[in-house]
Design a protein around this nucleic acid. Structure first.
Length: 985
RNA sequence: GCGGCGGUGGCGAAACUGGUAGACGCACUACUUUGAGGUGGUAGCGGUCGAAAGACUGUGAAAGUUCGAAUCUUUUCCGCCGCACCA
């Protein structure tokens, strides 16, 4: 019987389904294991071979853990809300619910082809009301909470109200909101607003609610947001890449809008600390750490002074991480948007300042990022140095950002590169406080220099001076210790339709939460996706929805962003059908953290941070027991596409001729020849024809070939290229015969395409559909090949040709068991020790490799064992049956088939792996350390039943030791004692 | 610029705590099975010299530690990813 993978795979997939093999129980005496994939956004393009890489890895590990006796939760679902579906709806008039449903069905059929062991009974979709009911519910909990900095945890708003009634906000100042809220009691810096208990009691409802809004973990406020005109919505910081939207690449501008936010900044410290308790890659931790961007330093107030303005008492607050450099301050710089600009600009400087502000406003975010010009203007005012009393000019420049720190800095040109450039550019004074560390040419940001020109700090090491200065500033009451973060609160509303509606009703400018019993607040059906008035979403066009009968208020018409549902979905899998709670505590206690989370790096600062924050919040609310969602994160690399190019000749000067009737294509050799020498535009087609081999291309007789050539590389579908050789017949049929009349200039009768490794994408025609691979080679081959390509974490190009080797292996493996004539050729006689050695080696290696996610070497180990057993002509049950179990995680279908051929009646999933381990591996060999001069240098693995004599011989024969001894001949004694092999020199 | 990761045959890659570098697979070459193609089988395959045995050399480059370095340390070059005026 031949290895008929099509039959086998179809049959077993059906059998698994019929018998609910992968259904997992929440109630099991077995230890649990939670293996999760980042659920996909069901895009219209479907899956290409790159997508399943992570799923295969997690599936292998999940199956492996099942065999090891674990109760494994391995679910799958869809991140189904989001912008693309709505864009598609706008363009094609198909309702997002419809297109999403279609895409999901398509995804599912593609996934099913590959033989995953997902428990589909637990499938979740974020766009399902049964799911988003709980997204809305968690939102309400966030809305109803504030962050108690004293206790470092979230608390109920009710508690805060009690505190305010009792003692005002003296002990709980308004958190560092980045965004202003109107109608607060006045104060220059609204985060410094304080009120007493009696103040609080005198406030009206609106003021109270406005104040509470300043504390809520989900809050609504006005602020500068990333507005994308093309998408008609705001975007979170992580959705903006280099000034354009992540999806679609549209320009993004700053705009002031009313917006919902998540106060993720309150969790900044815990998000940082939590990184130490989880197993993420260094790169991932680094990215999150950078994104959070914690820095500590001091905020210092400088008195301002101006020669032309009436004496005023303004203070300028600056933030610095280097208070030790205070005597090196030569000027101050404030951001162009700074509130003091108007106040401190002197009449003489007014024109220049206005001009500069206008210039800054004219520059887009992108321009500002792209070209970093040194620009700025003097305000005419001065700050007074707190120690030396020196006058320090105050400048305005766009290199100081309004959003970070206080929007103002003290410039220390000898120690900061930007300040130094600025000083040089405008010819400002540069005070050297670090002696020879400063060379006059470049700033030196060292902390090790001994301070000079620094009065009471002279002779002190900078590092130590930081503390001294900060203390002194605090004593003088003009400065305080301050921690700053780059991370901003996360914009949480979108002016879109296809997302979770906010369970909020606005009345008299106050946001009231919906009652729990009114959830889910369902998304209404819409006909039009046009944005509503004043930057609202499409829901603002449906009065029937936002107006509530019998009430004066109206519903919030924004919707939640794509990351809302994905911030907690991993909890829903534990209890997916519960309509009383988001997840029963009993089950979240049982499953706990995700033990293994696999997905791409692209979610480093988005999804992964948000879901970590939500988890911490739910933990604070005592709704779950753990406060980090993922114990271990594995980032799969990308599978890149290998693009193929054809080179089309465009003939210039073609007036009066008919060359353009035939697009002419050059094979790579010609393309490179002319391109490389830079001659292409000087060459005519005639030159080319004279150069080519005779007879390969018959040029139409009447054409004029004298025009110069230019060549355009064109992406060609990789599926009509065999390796690098173009299938010309297929090419002519490609794209409905667009190239039907193509003519080719060949090399040795073949058309060789150009090649380049790029990201896999439809537009580059380099995608490969897993369905085609599965159809041709089977799912088992596909799975193993994806793993065989290289380490899971690494990016690597897809090469369809290499798959043959893996396919060959499976056929070879099959032939250990079955033969062309007979179904089963397995013999029951006991294996020889040589055969057992092959087996044991394989078991040891494959187990280790699987355990440490080194699936590529695991696959290799299978190949080696199979090759060796084939060579030994070994068809003995005891030597080959264990391999079937071992192979099951990698190639489940063929394993299941062979398992049954071998006479078992249960699924290979139920094979008792631990037992088998005991039977075959345990204590079959032992590893001994070899010590040289008492220091362990290497190890020897020796069969358990080896005699002392044999061990001694082995040590002698060991090349490692032998070489070492040869390299350094001297007296040597070798002895074997208590299993420790010792070599003494 | 800063930070992280990496650089090993024609290609994807192994080498886990320093111990015979290149396992395994692809591609390639020769032979074999076959009427032919595919499949299957055997052998070769880093480089140089050699018919072969074998010798020398070899993990981006340079230096160092070590009996021994792809692996550790320092410097440097290149590539990928992330951040980017964050004071």
């Amino acid at each position: 019987m031949e290895y008929n993978f099509r039959d086998i795979e179809k049959r077993w997939q059906q059998w698994w389904k019929d018998h609910d093999i992968y259904k997992v129980s929440n109630d099991s005496p077995k230890p649990k294991y939670y293996a999760l994939d980042m659920f996909p956004y069901p895009s219209g393009a479907g899956l290409h071979v790159g997508h399943p890489l992570g799923y295969i890895a997690s599936d292998i590990y999940a199956r492996f853990k099942r065999l090891k006796g674990f109760n494994v939760l391995h679910p799958m679902g869809y991140d189904a809300f989001g912008l693309p579906a709505e864009q598609y709806a706008i363009e094609h008039g198909i309702h997002p619910a419809m297109s999403t449903e279609n895409n999901i069905n398509n995804f599912r059929s593609q996934l099913d082809n590959i033989g995953f062991s997902f428990d589909w009974s637990r499938e979740v979709r974020t766009s399902d009301p049964g799911f988003y009911k709980w997204t809305q519910w968690i939102f309400l909990q966030l809305f109803d909470s504030w962050y108690d900095r004293k206790k470092s945890k979230a608390q109920r708003i009710k508690l805060l109200e009690e505190i305010f009634t009792r003692e005002g906000n003296i002990n709980h100042p308004i958190p560092n909101a980045q965004f202003e809220i109107p109608s607060l009691p006045t104060a220059s810096h609204h985060s410094r607003v304080t009120f007493s208990a009696s103040d609080w009691q005198s406030f009206d409802e609106f003021t109270r609610q406005s104040i509470l809004m300043e504390y809520r973990l989900a809050y609504c406020g006005y602020g500068e947001v990333n507005w994308c005109e093309a998408l008609g919505t705001v975007l979170a910081n992580d959705e903006v890449i280099n000034g354009v939207s992540e999806r679609g690449g549209y320009p993004v501008v700053k705009k002031r809008l009313r917006q919902w936010y998540l106060r993720i900044t309150e969790y900044a410290d815990r998000l940082l600390e939590g990184l130490q308790t989880v197993d993420f890659s260094e790169a991932m931790k680094e990215m999150q750490t950078n994104w959070i961007g914690k820095s500590s330093g001091a905020e210092i107030s400088f008195r301002l002074w101006s020669p032309q303005l009436a004496a005023h008492s303004s203070q300028l607050a600056v933030y610095t991480t280097r208070p030790d450099t205070i005597f090196g301050v030569d000027f101050m710089v404030i951001a162009p948007e700074h509130e003091l600009v108007e106040l401190i600009t002197t009449p003489v400087q007014k024109e220049a300042v206005d001009e500069y502000i206008a210039y800054v406003k004219s520059r887009s975010e992108r321009e500002r990022m792209a070209e970093k010009k040194i620009s700025g203007v003097f305000t005419g005012s001065y700050a007074r140095h707190p120690f030396s009393g020196r006058e320090i000019p105050v400048w305005i420049s766009e290199y100081v950002l309004i959003g970070y720190g206080t929007g103002a800095i003290m410039a220390v040109p000898c120690g900061d590169e930007r300040d130094h450039k600025f000083a040089k550019h405008f010819g400002l004074q540069i005070t050297n406080i670090i002696g020879s560390y400063y060379n006059g040419e470049e700033a030196n940001p060292t902390k090790d220099a001994l301070l000079e020109n620094s009065e009471f700090l002279n002779g002190m090491v900078m590092k130590d001076a930081i503390e001294v200065v900060t203390k002194k500033l605090e004593e003088m009451n003009i400065g305080e210790r301050k921690v700053n973060y780059k991370m901003r609160d996360a914009a949480f509303s979108r002016q879109r339709y296809w997302g979770e509606p906010f369970p909020i009703i606005w009345e008299n400018g106050i946001a009231y939460p919906l009652d729990e019993t009114e959830l889910p607040l369902k998304l209404p059906h819409v006909e039009s996706y046009k944005p509503g008035p004043e930057g609202e979403g499409p829901l603002a066009n449906i009065p029937g929805w936002y107006l509530i009968p019998g009430m004066r208020g109206m519903r919030e018409t924004n919707t939640m962003p794509g990351y809302a549902g994905s911030s907690w979905y991993f909890l829903r899998y534990m209890d997916p059908h519960n309509d009383k709670q988001f997840c029963d505590r009993k089950y979240s206690n049982y499953w706990g953290q995700v033990d293994l989370y696999i997905g791409g790096t692209e979610h480093a600062v988005g999804h992964l941070l948000y879901s970590r924050m939500w988890t911490k919040f739910l933990h604070d609310m005592d709704l779950i027991s753990h406060d980090e969602p993922y114990k271990r994160l594995l980032n799969q690399g990308m599978i890149q596409g290998s693009s193929r190019f054809v080179y089309r000749v465009d003939i210039a000067n073609q007036a009066g001729t008919s060359q353009h009737r035939y697009p002419i294509f050059l094979s790579l050799k010609y393309y490179q020849k002319y391109l490389a020498s830079g001659f292409l535009s000087l060459v005519t087609l005639e030159d080319l024809l004279n150069d080519r081999h005779q007879g390969e291309w018959k040029a139409p007789v009447q054409d004029d070939y004298s025009g110069t050539l230019s060549v355009a590389p064109i992406h060609v579908d990789v599926n009509i290229v065999d390796g690098v050789e173009l299938n010309i017949t297929e090419f002519k049929k490609w794209r409905n015969g667009e190239y039907a009349n193509a003519e080719f200039i060949l090399e040795d009768g073949r058309y060789i395409c150009g090649a380049e490794i790029e990201k896999m994408s439809k537009s580059k025609f380099n995608t490969v559909n897993p369905n085609e691979i599965v159809e041709k080679y089977g799912a088992d081959t596909f799975r193993m090949y994806e793993m065989f390509l290289g380490p899971v974490e690494m990016s690597k190009p897809w090469d369809t040709k290499g798959i043959e080797g893996v396919h060959r292996f499976l056929k070879k493996f099959w032939r250990l068991f079955a033969d062309e004539e007979k179904d089963l050729i397995v013999a029951e006689e006991p294996p020889t020790s040589e055969e057992l050695k092959v087996l044991h080696k394989a078991i040891k290696k494959i187990e280790e490799d699987t355990q440490r996610f080194s699936f590529n070497t695991g696959v290799s180990a299978f190949m080696i064992a199979t090759n060796e057993l084939t060579e030994l002509k070994c068809h003995k049950r005891a030597a080959i049956e264990p391999l079937v179990i071992l192979l099951a995680p990698y190639a489940p279908h063929i394993s299941e088939e062979l398992w049954h051929l071998l006479g078992h009646t249960t699924s290979v999933v139920d094979a008792a792996f631990p037992k088998f381990e005991e039977q075959y591996v345990k204590e079959s060999s032992k590893t001994y350390p070899i010590a040289i001069n008492g220091k362990t240098r290497t190890e020897l693995t020796i069969a358990l039943d080896a005699t002392q004599q044999q061990v001694e011989e082995l040590v002698l024969a060991n090349d490692v030791v032998k070489k070492w001894m040869e390299g350094k001949p001297s007296k040597k004694v070798i002895f074997v004692k208590n299993k420790m092999v010792n070599v003494v020199v």
